[in-house]
């Protein structure tokens, strides 16, 4: 599902699109979209080791793909430090079964997204002119 705003494309990716993919394919799928100058709004989030792998693969592509300068990445998570123990436990089971669908990940090409400003209450996507 994609929305176009004067050359800017936001692509919503439901978690179901990556649920059955292994880590390499997940990252490839994401980077393929970013290389097409689209911003992904992914339902859920990658595993911690996938997030670092995404950074590694991004770095490996800079210099090899023309005009590619990297990515901007932000995860909005529903959790916070004061979640009760039982709730954390049930959330953990839900994550193990269906993935972390309560979070949302925004990934965009650095050539379009200048910065993603984030604080606990809001997230701002700063675009390049």
């Amino acid at each position: 599902m994609a929305k176009k705003i004067k050359g800017l494309t936001l692509e919503f990716m439901p978690y179901s699109e990556i649920r059955d993919l292994d880590s390499s394919r997940r990252i490839k799928k994401i980077l393929d979209i970013v290389l097409n100058n689209r911003i992904i709004v992914l339902q859920g989030r990658l595993k911690p080791e996938e997030e670092t792998r995404l950074i590694e693969d991004t770095m490996a592509m800079i210099g090899h793909v023309k005009s590619f300068k990297g990515i901007e990445l932000a995860v909005i998570s529903s959790g916070n430090g004061s979640t009760p123990v039982f709730q954390k436990f049930t959330q953990g089971i839900a994550k193990a079964l269906v993935g972390d669908t309560a979070s949302m990940t925004i990934i965009g090409p650095a050539s379009i997204v200048k910065e993603i400003k984030k604080n606990p209450k809001k997230i701002e996507l700063m675009l390049k002119k």
Binding site: K47, P48, T52, I55, L73, V75, K117, K118, N119
Partner: peptide
């Protein structure tokens, strides 16, 4: 600087994992 950068969160999340 703003500490809520995703890189900081990703590094710490990896170490925790």
């Amino acid at each position: 600087k703003n500490p809520y950068s995703q890189v900081n969160i990703t590094i710490i999340g990896n170490l925790a994992a």
